[in-house]
Simulated scan of single mutants.
Amino acid sequence: MVVRLQYARSASPSTIVIASDRTLVALDSRTDPGLVDQLWGQVSAGTGFESLIGSIPAESAGRQLAFVAIGDIVERADGAAFHALVNGPIGFDVAAAGAPRHVAPTGSSPWLRTNLQSVSHIAIGADAETPQFPLGAGVVATSRIDVAIGEVAQATASTSQRSGEPGSVLLDSHDDAHDGQTVAHVPSANTLTGPVRLADVPHTRPTMMFGYRVNGGQAFALDLPHRYGRSPRVVSGGEARLVPLLSPTKTVSATHLDLRQIGDAVVVSDLGSTNGTSVMEPGAHWRRMAPGESVAVAAGTFIDLGDGNVIEVMPGVPLR
């Protein structure tokens, strides 16, 4: 199984993370060190999920223990499956079948137990404002941890190997689905300088990794081209991550939008949607894109696909 973990260093860590390739436990940073040592012994020994959660107490250091436990991670063809138990307000985010979701107790219950399927990403903590570092099996104090599983992890690992820089993450872009489209330039902090054909944009090594989030949810990296729609698809020979969106009125087309990073540029492409796409760059007004138009945009840009589905382009994180 391919699992890739990364964590953010922080001067004021909020979480202690105990990790292996099949288990992840995130605890309040005030947890008794003796308990952390005990749990690390179990995780490193490969203790199963049921035995692990049975050994986690309700309190630590005289207070209720808040934690997330994820275990028995198994990679399948459509993503990972695992068991999870959330106790207290920490919660975590996942990308399941390409769609973001926050997992946390609701209502009056202080805990939640669930099984999840088709997961490619797991994230715990606030969005990282600093570079993230790779983590194998171990214990770290952090404010944020991200886990990529299966093909997503393999893609980042393979690009790191090609770079010759251990731990780095590089972009492997593909333009198969966009040959012949024109990219219009919008003033932004990227490397495109005027109208160009998308196929002619140089695939230079990026120095930043940009991201996105849908409707203010969890942020994810633009490590591959992403396609959004009610039931998005990829043309033959192309490669993209598919992100289904809810659209009760069918304002959003089945395959509506493509978002990708090329070098240090982020390119938005309307895929001939029926009801159109609007973009708003920082400090500018909403502008409606022409059907099939592609445009380079800056971090902080909002993209409206309709039916309340708004994508935000997130700032880039420097690559090592």
Rank of each mutant, 00 (worst) to 15 (best):
T182H: 05
V94A: 06
L39N: 03
V297H: 02
S51K: 12
P225K: 03
R233D: 06
T156V: 07
V152G: 00
G263A: 05
A95R: 13
T207V: 08
A26M: 11
T207E: 13
V235R: 11
P110A: 07
E129A: 13
L5A: 09
G263S: 09
V266G: 07
G88K: 10
R227V: 14
V268W: 00
V267P: 02
A84K: 00
D28R: 11
Q64W: 11
T249M: 08
T142C: 07
R197P: 00
G217M: 05
F92T: 03
T277L: 10
P232V: 10
P202G: 08
M1I: 08
R205E: 14
Q161W: 12
A148V: 01
I303H: 02
G167N: 04
A284C: 08
G194F: 03
A219W: 04
P206I: 03
A123Q: 12
G41V: 11
S51N: 11
Q154M: 12
S12K: 14
G238Y: 00
G229V: 01
Q64G: 00
A26R: 02
V43Q: 03
W286A: 10
E129C: 04
V68C: 12
T142E: 04
L246P: 00
D304I: 04
V140I: 15
Q181E: 05
L192F: 11
T114L: 15
V266A: 01
L171A: 14
A221D: 13
L171R: 12
D264I: 02
G237D: 06
T130N: 12
R63V: 15
I53F: 03
V169S: 08
T251R: 10
S269L: 12
D21S: 13
V313G: 12
Q117K: 14
H256T: 04
A95P: 00
E59I: 07
G71C: 10
I18G: 01
V279Y: 04
P134W: 05
T31H: 09
R101S: 15
A80I: 12
G88D: 07
S158E: 15
F302Q: 15
G216W: 03
P105M: 05
V317D: 07
L65A: 04
L112P: 07
T23Y: 05
P187L: 09
H256I: 01
G98D: 07
D200R: 06
A265E: 01
T15L: 15
V317W: 08
H203P: 00
A240R: 01
V169P: 01
S188L: 02
S163W: 02
A219D: 09
P291C: 11
A298L: 06
A77N: 14
A97N: 10
N275P: 02
P206H: 11
D72P: 03
L305Y: 04
N190Q: 03
D223N: 12
L192C: 09
A99Q: 14
W111G: 08
Q38E: 15
Q117N: 13
